[in-house]
Amino acid sequence: MSALPPYATTGQRIWFYTFRYVICAGILFFLIAPILIIIPLSFNAQDFFTFTPEMLSLSPDGYSLKHYNDFFTNSDWQKALKNSFIIAPAATLIATSLGTLAAIGLSQSHVPFRRTIMAILISPMIVPLIISAAGMFFFYSRIGLQGEYLGIILAHAALGTPFVIITVTATLVGFDRSLTRAAASLGADPVTTFFKVQMPLIIPGVVSGALFAFITSFDEVVVVLFMGSARQKTLPWQMFTGLREQISPTILAVATIMVAISIILLTVLELLRRRSERLRGLSPS
């Protein structure tokens, strides 16, 4: 059904076009419209959550940057932004470095208890967030990490590691082991082999794992809500309270900025995927 055959009947033609341009287009609209609609709404000159008559008539008076201005001048939002950019990179660093090492270890041919280890390592992804958050809240308040930056960073790193494991393992599946053997036979020690031969080849997987870990932490709100104190308010937490209590249109400006961030991340990931495929195409499998 990739294309309509020339002998198609009228009924088939109607169905084909209805399916493609009504049903699928409608569903795609449902998927994408809610995300795109907040972009114009964020430029609203009024404190409304809907299009004002001025906006619909495309009059410049209907649009303004006041919500963005509010975001960049309001100390609450700025503090939240800063916290997010402290916590997410730190968590990403821990998750990526430990996760990459472990993925390399797991890809060796003889690992005892591989299934059990794998199950433990990806369990943070499987367990519903509310349960992880509850358990972490109980345990971290026991050891005095509740309400501390370190506690949230460790928690977020734990939640991000499964993504690193999965992406790096996937890259390593296509990794040609004879390359490391060749390097060793030419006299390179294991550390040199790792950094000169293996790392450049698996770097796309590592970076996309890091991006997953970053977005996991950057987006995460349940654990922060439970474990953080007012000092560690992150962007999603501020959005959550904003939506729950005093809903202000500044949220739409923040949301637009976050959509822009996710578009950038998506683009980077797509480029990495292509690069990875190209690299893999070079090595004989």
């Binding site: 994408i32 609609i37 987006d219 959005m239 949220i251 996710s262 578009i263």
Partner: peptide
């Protein structure tokens, strides 16, 4: 794109 967009962004747009 929706998959990568923050959960809170999507929830707030539905709220709106």
């Amino acid at each position: 794109l929706p998959f990568w967009t923050s959960l809170l962004v999507r929830t707030s747009s539905w709220k709106v």
